[in-house]
Amino acid sequence: MTVGGWIVMILSVGGVTLLLGWCVYKVVTTPGSTEHLHSQADIETPDVREE
């Protein structure tokens, strides 16, 4: 493992971990996040209710 390898690894892993940490902080400190934030998993398509 070269010095360049250590730098790439720390920047890559550290960068994505910090980004995730920031997003988690934003979601838990944002009032109304449970109502306004969505993912594919919690979007119920209307056709499911129709049949």
């Binding site: 892993v13 994505v16 971990t17 980004l19 995730l20 997003c23 996040s33 934030l37 969505h38």
Partner: peptide, 22 residues
């Protein structure tokens, strides 16, 4: 109409990247 999409997709991207890279 007024649902958030900016933070939702950023959170999805960050979670995905954490699992992928880290």
């Amino acid at each position: 109409r007024n649902d958030d999409i900016a933070l939702s997709s950023l959170t999805a991207v960050s979670g995905n990247e954490f699992c992928e890279v880290a």
